[in-house]
Nucleic acid binder design. Structure first.
Length: 517
RNA sequence: GGCGCUAUCGUCUAGGGGUUAGGACGGAAGAUUCUCAAUCUUCAAACCCGGGUUCGAUUCCCGGUAGCGCUACCA
């Protein structure tokens, strides 16, 4: 590992929107490699596209990366030895090196207008040729070129692509070669003085001493231009690792129309960061042996290797992410999830009417609430893929509508069973006369005694016995164990909650009333 | 159009000149439970096509096809 002692990698996003899972996965692989090798992780902001870049996106990017559990050793927020880490602050550097290339004859001034270039391109395309720059300004005498420039003629700076094939090594794909006839002389500095991405990325990576460029494979075709640039500048070419694309279920490149794709989306859905990290790591990478799927951060750092990256594109599978999320939800102590879970209930208006006490800000909740709510979570957490499903899955606690239960076609069968009426009336009678139940203090033991009583009196058992009672208590013939549910209902009814939780007694009473109507 | 990359169950993948082609998600069936969820067990499910190399190709090579990417004074 000593050969890797000086590993320096970077994640270089554009602040033009939300952090997307594809980019997050690139960031993750860079980070894993850095952490594993004891190398350095650099965060650099690529904001040379002035029109689309926004400062607020940069803040969000940083927040999203941190949420995922990533960190970095150098970056715009913390500085470092190769400052600045924002491209818009490095313009002088880009101009300086462009001038050097010009002086050394490795680049030249191009006076072609956009209209001319456009025409050239169309011509090439119509002849079914590769649309590359003709190189017509290559031959302009440097003296003449500087005269024209001095005369304020608009000029861009182009790199001279060498007359030999460009080869480089990609860790994921092996040796890659491009014929020089296929790569045009790229513009490195626009006529307005602004540098172009393919150029700045090289300047920055080289100046920041990046040793391994790990990025999406949409950059693979740009790499020959960049390699030519390194060579023209006389700088060492880094190792490349081009990551496969992440696709949607329709095998098209993953985008907004595939639903949740940004890190913020997943966070807001109640996907846990460790689940997302684990899932992302498995997209395009597999451990040696290939049978292990669950990895903690530390295990990923230990097991990860660039050599085991897969070159083929991967379809993002939400179901598998949910499987991991379910796994990590069960791993976490419920108390860990308390705050976040609570916010979903508040948002759903279950613990405070929405709009009244704000967006989940300071909800006044009674003493004893926390203990009770943890029981609710304990009960319903195993039933969710993501935390935002919690309120809906817990609605049997917060919502009760006897009329709806009686009208629900799903319940028709149970309601029509021959013994249902007997069970309902015996059960209603026993609950309504029970002192504990009246006080909202019914215990699971007392409840079981009542159940046994009804069982004996009606001669029913199993479904015939339980489904009608379940219906009366929850409005549905299926649901969680009574032993766990009864205490939650009873305790909930005694808490002064913004929305009253009905006790067993209140439910049975409401059901009986609705039924006699 | 040109160039590049890719191709194992529906999906993520392991494997690799001779294997019952392994695992996981999802699916189906069963066990358990009053039911749901959870859990456990079992099952179905794949080497894109065509040539070559070879005693033998899913594996190596070539071609085709398909998907994706790049082809900008975008990043």
């Amino acid at each position: 590992m000593s050969a890797n002692a000086a590993v320096r990698v970077r994640f270089a996003p554009s602040p033009t929107g939300q952090l997307h899972v594809g980019n997050a996965r690139t960031a993750l692989f860079n980070w894993l490699f850095a952490r594993q090798t004891g190398g350095t992780m650099v965060l650099r902001i690529e904001d040379t596209d002035v029109e689309r870049s926004e400062a607020r996106f940069e803040d969000q990017l940083i927040a999203d990366l941190k949420w995922l559990g990533l960190d970095w050793d150098e970056g715009p927020d913390i500085g470092g030895p190769y400052t600045p880490y924002r491209q818009s602050d490095r313009l002088d550097l880009y101009r300086e090196h462009a001038q050097r290339l010009l002086d050394e004859g490795k680049a030249y001034l191009c006076f072609c207008t956009e209209a001319e270039l456009q025409k050239e391109r169309e011509q090439a395309l119509s002849e079914q040729r590769q649309a590359i720059y003709s190189g017509k300004c290559r031959m302009i005498d440097p003296g003449e070129a500087s005269r024209r420039q001095a005369a304020r003629e608009a000029a861009a700076i182009r790199l001279r692509i060498p007359e030999h094939p460009i080869r480089f090594h990609d860790i994921v794909r092996g040796p890659v070669e491009f014929s020089n006839e296929v790569v045009s002389d790229p513009i490195i500095l626009r006529s307005n003085g602004m540098p172009v991405y393919n150029y700045v990325v090289v300047i920055d990576d080289a100046l920041m001493k990046i040793t391994h460029v790990i990025r999406g494979d949409d950059h693979l075709s740009n790499t020959p231009k960049q390699v030519a640039l390194y060579e023209a500048l006389g700088w060492p070419v880094p190792e490349f690792a081009h990551l496969s694309t992440i696709l949607g279920a329709d095998r098209e490149r993953l985008s907004k129309r595939h639903g949740a794709t940004s890190i913020a989306n997943f966070r807001d859905m109640g996907v846990l960061p460790e689940a997302l990290m684990n899932y992302l790591a498995l997209l395009g990478w597999a451990p040696s042996g290939g049978t292990r799927e669950i990895f903690s951060r530390e295990e990923l750092i230990k097991e990860f290797s660039l050599e085991r990256l897969t070159p083929s594109p991967a379809v993002f599978d939400m179901e598998k992410l949910y499987w991991l999320n379910r796994h990590y939800i069960k791993q976490r102590p419920v108390a860990d999830l308390y705050q976040q879970a609570l916010s979903f209930f508040v948002r759903a208006g279950l613990l405070s009417p929405p709009g009244e006490s704000g967006q989940g800000a300071s909800v006044m909740l009674p003493a004893g609430f926390r203990e009770w709510f943890l029981k609710v979570l304990e009960l319903r957490l195993p039933a969710v893929d993501r935390l935002d499903q919690l309120p809906e899955r817990a609605s049997l606690i917060f919502n009760y509508d006897a009329n709806a239960a009686l009208a629900d076609p799903d319940n028709a069968e149970v309601l029509n069973w021959p013994h249902t009426d007997a069970v309902i009336s015996r059960f209603t009678f026993k609950i309504l006369e029970n002192e504990s139940a009246r006080a909202g203090q019914l215990t699971p033991e007392e409840f079981r005694a009542i159940v046994n009583h009804v069982k004996a009196e009606t001669g029913t058992k199993g479904k015939e016995l339980f489904h009608p009672m379940r219906l009366m208590i929850t409005g549905s013939h299926s649901g969680p164990d009574f032993d766990k549910l009864i205490p939650i209902l009873e305790e909930g009814s005694r808490l002064q909650l913004p929305r009253h939780v009905l006790s067993v007694f209140e439910r049975v009473q409401a059901f009986a009333k609705a039924r006699t109507k």
